[in-house]
Design a protein around this nucleic acid. Structure first.
Lengths: 185, 185
DNA sequence: CTCCTGATGTCAGTTGCTGTCATCAGGAAG
DNA sequence: CTTCCTGATGACAGCAACTGACATCAGGAG
């Protein structure tokens, strides 16, 4: 038996989401989150760089999945096509945790600093996507553009998915992509 | 003659940019900025909500210009076409202050919190563009998509413009738009 | 002349975040 | 078994961002 309760990070994330939902991000102190998780404030900051980051622990895994999926897209796919395929592929990760994603999104949208942080995560995803595209031989300017537009599609699709009980995220990604094609016709 | 030196905001903005360039955003305290501007820390926070915001004073004017330009686009223009036309129209505002924009961008890119704030400003612009499009009778989903994609084009064009001495921003916007069309062919 | 307004100063306080050192269970090495 | 080391944690002091409350006072309105 180990000296401390296991899964400190998980406890911190749960405590933080619960408290943010109860009273709002600004009304919660880091000391309270740590206390509910049976830890101290100092330990919170050893696991998360700041008070916002605790809500974005999953973004690294998402990025990895996306990059892998881009690399695995058919060789004949266009840059944007590969990105869209990758976005569709990770859709299941969201579908499986619908309720958690919804709660998290409500908290994020209620606070400016959290919206800020989310945008940074999306921009980081765009950078990673662009790098993955370059790895497929796509030239840098085209890779940047496809990645940015892909993230724009994802943002639109995600909003529609959160508001659509039961629908699959991948379907919304495909729909947004189709809308873009139509809009450019 | 008035009681205080005029243009307190302008002095704060100049002092902040100068200090951020000299030592980097994190190494500068708000008290120092205020001191260089002949004011106190408390007064700084009366003009700007936080230490980052002082670098983004111009974004409100930019948003207003963009919204006006979208409203003024030809009635026959597609949603994305109207957004692109608006982006081209505001290009001159940037061309006229090339060096200032460049210095500001160097400071912003050197710091994570500032990059975060910039993304928020761009997202806010996207929201305003979408609203302006709805004002032209564009349905909400198409308006959101055109606005997001328009901002994606702007981000790409801006990066290219900053790295291209002498080129006009509007030209880079047109080029990015053309690239997108080509990529979807 | 008086009163009011608005930009500023002063000061105390909360909290996010960091540096530093102490603690101590359990595994590795002897 | 004893010793040493490692890694996660706690304890504590401190800085700086940001806020609320109250004071100040030049100049305009009346």
């Amino acid at each position: 038996m180990s000296r401390w309760e296991p899964n400190a990070r998980g406890r911190l994330e749960q405590a933080a989401l619960a408290l943010y939902r109860e009273r709002g991000f600004e009304q919660v102190t880091v000391a309270e989150i740590a206390g509910r998780a049976g830890l101290t404030e100092r330990t919170f900051f050893r696991h998360y760089a700041d008070k916002r980051e605790v809500l974005f622990a999953g973004s690294a895994a998402l990025q990895e999945s996306l990059v892998t999926a881009v690399a695995a897209a058919p060789a004949a796919a266009t840059p944007l096509g590969a990105v869209v395929a990758a976005l569709e592929a990770v859709g299941e990760q969201f579908d499986a945790r619908r309720e958690l994603a919804r709660q998290r999104q409500v908290v994020i949208e209620a606070n400016r600093e959290l919206r800020e942080r989310e945008l940074v995560k999306l921009a980081t995803l765009a950078d990673a996507l662009a790098a993955a595209l370059r790895g497929r031989g796509v030239a840098a300017p085209a890779a940047d553009l496809a990645a940015e537009v892909g993230i724009a599609l994802f943002k639109v699709a995600f909003v529609r998915w959160v508001g659509d009980d039961g629908g699959k995220l991948a379907a919304h990604v495909r729909a947004a992509f189709a809308d873009l094609r139509d809009g450019l016709r």
